[in-house]
């Protein structure tokens, strides 16, 4: 079974907002090559994209590890940023600690984490203040 798992790893650069989203675009291309249905690819890509943007604006970047099995796409986003103080609060639509300059870039509406939950079939957040955040999302195929 394990040899049926395909893995992708992307580094997410936290220094340059212009490049934020690059990893998600690459993931989308890679998933297309695997012949996964467009709807599933879209859900995975949007979830990954919001998570990638969060890593850039809230955590100075990180690493995205993706596993594709016969049953599901697992997206693991790991960063060594400040961590999330109150996960329940962060999950609420509209809650955001993003500064105004991020808002003028089109993000920071406090919809990212809710979107990630909406588009994935399972989502888990592990976060420790001052240590970092790991978010795991599963999207069924």
């Amino acid at each position: 079974m394990d040899n049926n798992i395909i893995r992708f790893t992307y580094n997410v650069d936290g220094t340059d907002f212009t490049s934020a989203g690059q990893a998600s675009v690459m993931l989308k291309k890679n998933l297309r090559q695997l012949g996964i249905s467009p709807d599933t690819i879209r859900r995975a890509s949007i979830a990954m994209y919001e998570g990638e943007i969060n890593m850039v604006i809230h955590a100075d970047g990180g690493v995205a590890e993706i596993e594709v099995s016969e049953e599901c796409i697992t997206i693991m986003l790991k960063d060594s940023g400040p961590g999330i103080k109150d996960i329940n609060q962060a999950m609420q639509e509209g809650f955001s600690t993003a500064p105004d300059d991020v808002r003028s870039l089109g993000f920071g509406a406090g919809m990212g984490l809710p979107n990630m939950k909406r588009y994935s079939d399972h989502m888990e957040i592990e976060s420790e203040l001052g240590v970092g955040t790991t978010i795991t999302m599963k999207i069924n195929i």
Partner: peptide, 17 residues
């Protein structure tokens, strides 16, 4: 349709097909 002009606009559209 948007008044925002940056690379994330294109990537957002790409994510949404």
């Amino acid at each position: 349709l948007t008044g925002l002009v940056n690379s994330q606009v294109i990537r957002t559209a790409e994510m949404m097909d």
